[in-house]
Design a protein around this nucleic acid. Sequence first.
DNA 1: CCTGACGCCTCACGCCACGTGAGGGTCAAT
DNA 2: ATTGACCCTCACGTGGCGTGAGGCGTCAGG
Lengths: 255, 255
Amino acid sequence: MTTWTVGQVADLFDVTVRTLHHYDEIGLLVPSERSRAGYRLYTAEDLTRLQQVVVYRRLEMPLEEIATLLDRGEDAADHLRRQRATVMTRLDELRELVSAIDRALERAMNDQPATTEDLKELFGDGFTDEYEQEAQERWGETDAWKQSRSRTKRYTKADWEQVKQEADAVNAAFVAALRSGEPASGEAAMDAAEQHRRHIHDRFYDLDHTFHRGLADMYVADPRFTKTYEDIAPGLAAYVRDAIHANADRHATGG
Amino acid sequence: MTTWTVGQVADLFDVTVRTLHHYDEIGLLVPSERSRAGYRLYTAEDLTRLQQVVVYRRLEMPLEEIATLLDRGEDAADHLRRQRATVMTRLDELRELVSAIDRALERAMNDQPATTEDLKELFGDGFTDEYEQEAQERWGETDAWKQSRSRTKRYTKADWEQVKQEADAVNAAFVAALRSGEPASGEAAMDAAEQHRRHIHDRFYDLDHTFHRGLADMYVADPRFTKTYEDIAPGLAAYVRDAIHANADRHATGG
DNA sequence: CCTGACGCCTCACGCCACGTGAGGGTCAAT
DNA sequence: ATTGACCCTCACGTGGCGTGAGGCGTCAGG
């Protein structure tokens, strides 16, 4: 009994006979032998290959990709290491999902109008809430901050989503300008800067070009804000700052 | 202003427009509004529903099932709790997969003739797991079976070799007794039977003399088990059964 | 030797959850 | 008025099998 039939293999590996037929059809796992009657006969080698296939499949890898991987002349240990790494990333993702669900649950319990907490989810962990406290300390006394608070307090989840949309669009404009190779003093960059100013002006607090310069400088001075932009594209923080200054210059001299 | 178009929703939730179309088609998520031009317009309520759908989908739940769940008048918290539970189970499965891969890796490292030994580890030794599925059906509910499973799951290649050696020794003792012409009720045969019981007791599941009798009867009642012993020596199956009964008698009456 | 029962075979169509155009309208900005 | 980014509705394609239909192989029981 050094070979196995489809049914036996199916039972052993908890797959269906049809699945084995399919793997045979597409050449992913062709049994090394056939009986006179045409029965598929799987050898021990076939089974170890199937073992790899099954694990890769559980990681939702397409069959074709599995085939190329398995036919690449690596040994079992190589595959196992790769599989392990993949499972670990999947684990991380699921853990992240759990904590996201937990946050959502917490929110649902308090049943608050769900402004700040929803933000976290939408904007990713960072920006608004994470630095809200420090922002409070820094600018709590300023009119701009008070104005921003009083406005955003009324924002619904829906509004925030709109805000994020706009913010993303602004960032996209900056990135496009940067990628095009155009200098920060170019038209597109300055336009993006103006979009940026208007976005903040409309959504948070009155923002003129002078104060905008201050913001711009902070984007490179404060490593956390810098990171926000650098994560989008390397060099973006400085580019944004320069674009904002150029835009402010344009509005000061030209108009 | 508090509604979103397909593209916006798609970006926010990281799904494709086609997916939203599909959800609309099958009635899973029908946008509450349409513009004059026929554009789908999603409200905040629609988005919260989509949020649930997206999470359920990441748990690989069929859309139809998601639909019935969402239309069952439960609130968001109920869904979140269910989702959390599902993710936790998934996490457990993946953790189990990791340790399985680790064991396979360990095995692959200290293994030269990988194939045959791999199978042993995968399917257990010889007859036991060759008929694993039927064993599962027969005894899947019994404590003994569960215990055996949970113990053997952790066995390494080295452990299995040890187990096999012990089993061989037991069989050899039976064969020696049989060949010597001694009856199954003789000392040597009964000792072999006791060895047999202890082997199973230590390696697989708690086994007393009463249950041991049941096993013995099965060895002759079930042709496949019979065959395992008959292949070693003709008449061995019946001999083993009688020896086990004699041994059980000895322990019951004699102390 | 015949008869089921069961497992194996090969088509071949079905299903889910979309992907991917085709062909054409909408809308804000230049 | 034109452009270009979106939007619409068909409608067929795809991956990974599920699910019969129709038929052969094998083996235990009568």
